[in-house]
Design a protein around this nucleic acid. Sequence first.
DNA 1: ATTACTAGTAGACGAGTAA
DNA 2: TTTACTCGTCTACTAGTAA
Lengths: 225, 225
Amino acid sequence: MDEKYSFSLRKIALLGGINNYIAVSSRELGDALGMSQQSASKRILELLEEKYLIRDLGARRQRIKITDIGVEELRKEYNEYRRIFELTDHVTLHGKISSGMGEGGYYINQKPYMDQFYAKLRFKPFEGTLNIKVAVEDLDKLEVVRNMPGHVIDGFEKDGRTFGKVMAYRAKIQNLDCAIVVPERSHYEDTMELVCKFHLRRTLSIKDGDDVAVIVDLTPLSPEN
Amino acid sequence: MDEKYSFSLRKIALLGGINNYIAVSSRELGDALGMSQQSASKRILELLEEKYLIRDLGARRQRIKITDIGVEELRKEYNEYRRIFELTDHVTLHGKISSGMGEGGYYINQKPYMDQFYAKLRFKPFEGTLNIKVAVEDLDKLEVVRNMPGHVIDGFEKDGRTFGKVMAYRAKIQNLDCAIVVPERSHYEDTMELVCKFHLRRTLSIKDGDDVAVIVDLTPLSPEN
DNA sequence: ATTACTAGTAGACGAGTAA
DNA sequence: TTTACTCGTCTACTAGTAA
C-alpha cells in the first residue's frame, strides 16, 4: 500500500471506521490528517478508487467504512510493527502434526525447486513436506512470519504445468534445521509445511496428532537472497 | 512524526536498525523504500536532522542506527495499531432504531438530570432519548456494559414524584459523541437509550428500523465521576 | 452546511554529476 | 564504488469557488 494511503487509512481506523460506517466530513478528516478539506476530499476519492474504503454519500454527511481489503493492508503494517517490537530474532510456533493432502511432496521434489533449496538454504529436502496445524493462539505469529521477506524460491513451468513461487523461512524443529515453505499466492491458513534434510517423522519419531514446536529464524536476510 | 519519515524509519527498523548500527547504502535503502538513491540519501539527511537517526559515516559504507527519539515515535505508531486491532477499550453494539415509549424524553428533560449531564458528560442532551433495540448477538455485550461503573446521575424528588438514579456511559454513534443512559433499577432489557447534544434522527438521517452501531467507551472513569 | 472541481504553486523526486 | 549536490520536471497540495 502506498504510504500516503496507509496514514489516512490508519487515522480513519482510529476514528472507528473498521467495523462501522462513520460520519466524517472531509473537513474533519482534513483536520485529523493535518491537511486541507480539499485534499482530504481528494484522498477519500483515491481511497475509494483503491477499494480501501466504501462510502455512503448522504445529503448531509458522507459515511465511510474501511473495506476488508483496507483492513488487510492495515494488518500488514500492524504485523510489521509487531516484528519490530515483539519479535526479536525468533518466534516459536506450536502445533500438531497433520497428514494434510500430501501434495507438498510432489511439488517440493521437482528439480528446479530442489536446486534452489540447496543454493539458498544449503540442504536438499529429503522427502516431501511435514504438515503442521498451528495452534490457534499462535496463528497471528504465523501471519507475521508470512508477511516477512523470506528466501525466494522462484516458480517455473514444466509439461505445461505451472509451479508457483514459494517463500522459505529458516526454522528449527527439535534442534534440527528445517524450513517453512509458503506458496506465494496463499491465503489465510492454519497449516504450515516444513521441509528438512532428514525424514522428520522417522528421525524425530513423531506421528499425526503429536504436539511440536517450531522455532522460526527472523534475522534479516542478506541482500543476495 | 511526519508520515514520510514514519515510513522510512519503519523500514530501517525492519532492517534491524533499532538496537544496532546497520550498514545500509543509500541505494539499498532506496530500493527498500521504492525510491532513488538520491532521494534515499536526502531522506537519511532529513532523518538525521530530525534526530530520529544517528550515523557513523565511514569511508566505504555508512552505518545508521535509530535514536531513542526515533524508537519512541515508532512506538507511538505501534500503539495506534494496537488500539485498532487489540481494541480492549471499547465495545460495539449493533441494533435497530426503535420508537420506544417516549418516556425517556420526559425524564431526561428534567433540569436536575440536565445539569448533571452537563457537569459529567460536558453536553446538554438536545432532545429526549433515541431508543435502540440491540441485536440478540450483542445482548451479552450490553449486559457487560450495564454491569460496568458508569457516570452516576443522581436521582431526585419533584412534586411528590421520584426520579431515579441513572448510569450514563460515554459512547459514539457514527462518530458523534453520545451517551447510553440506564436507569439503575432496570431489569433485563434489549433496548438501550441514547442521549446526544444533537437531534440524532435528523443529524444522522436515521429512522425507525435502521441498523446502527454504537461504540461504547470502556476506558476507566477518572475518580471525580 | 456539505463535496469536489479548476487553477496556480510549492515541494518532492530523479537525472546528471562532483567529490 | 560510495554520498550528496544542483537543477529541471512533475506531482501533490491549497485557495477559490461551484453545485
